[in-house]
Design a binder for these strands. Sequence first.
DNA 1: TTCCTTGCAAATCGTTTGCATAATG
DNA 2: CATTATGCAAACGATTTGCAAGGAA
Lengths: 135, 135
Amino acid sequence: MAVKYSRQRQVIHNFLMTRKDHPTADVVYQNVRQEDPHISLGTVYRNLTLLADRGEILRLHVGDGVDHFDADTSPHSHFICSCCGCVTDFSIDCLEDMLSQAKQIFDGKIESLDTCFRGVCADCINAAAKQSEPG
Amino acid sequence: MAVKYSRQRQVIHNFLMTRKDHPTADVVYQNVRQEDPHISLGTVYRNLTLLADRGEILRLHVGDGVDHFDADTSPHSHFICSCCGCVTDFSIDCLEDMLSQAKQIFDGKIESLDTCFRGVCADCINAAAKQSEPG
DNA sequence: TTCCTTGCAAATCGTTTGCATAATG
DNA sequence: CATTATGCAAACGATTTGCAAGGAA
């Protein structure tokens, strides 16, 4: 099926490119609504799905029950904080090595690699430290 | 909260340990039911969640909209076939290196790493090849 | 007896979908 | 004009939850 231009899709994609925090569909909706008050949540979902299927954005499954979206399609890892739930980019140089190594070993066809670190982010560690300081 | 023994939980965990294909909650339910016909789907979900929270099994988010479960908690990667949806184990030796490298770079606390390769499995490639053979 | 667990069913909630209408090429 | 996209609301489906009853320590 051919893809036709749509203002809504453009607004959604533009918004996503301004964000580095990998927002969910609903966060995209809430923000895009301010620029396009009549846009519907269904349209946001439809376009995020379309963009992801075409490889123009990434759909991330971080395990919090909600999909996150990333306008940066270059190879990189993610870090998910189990405390605040934030999703941040994480650069690690051996990603490409790992992928090419895997392609040699595996007897099927490997197309991509998702790497997702989990733990507690610096902000949450600092916040916890402040909490336990004497008042 | 303290954890008390339950036959249902034991059956669920035992079943999961016999499988290497990372079944979903519903698949666990369908199978466990044959041994324990009165078990409910809610109980299966509750126990899978409890076991995962206690680190006795892994909950995998492979991106097909359904959680998968893995009784093998040792460090290993997974491969997901975009064709048949199967989830298979994948050994890659630089996993530990990657994790320790990340721990040094990152300014938060890294606890674990999920790595998930995507592509087409050998079975699906072979099946496709047979399809295109002359009859 | 106390607290955890179960079965059942209803509720939750992220996401998808059907349909009539609007916009694109 | 043919096709794709939208808004709206209803449908869907995986997972969670409330509650009364059962089982473990």
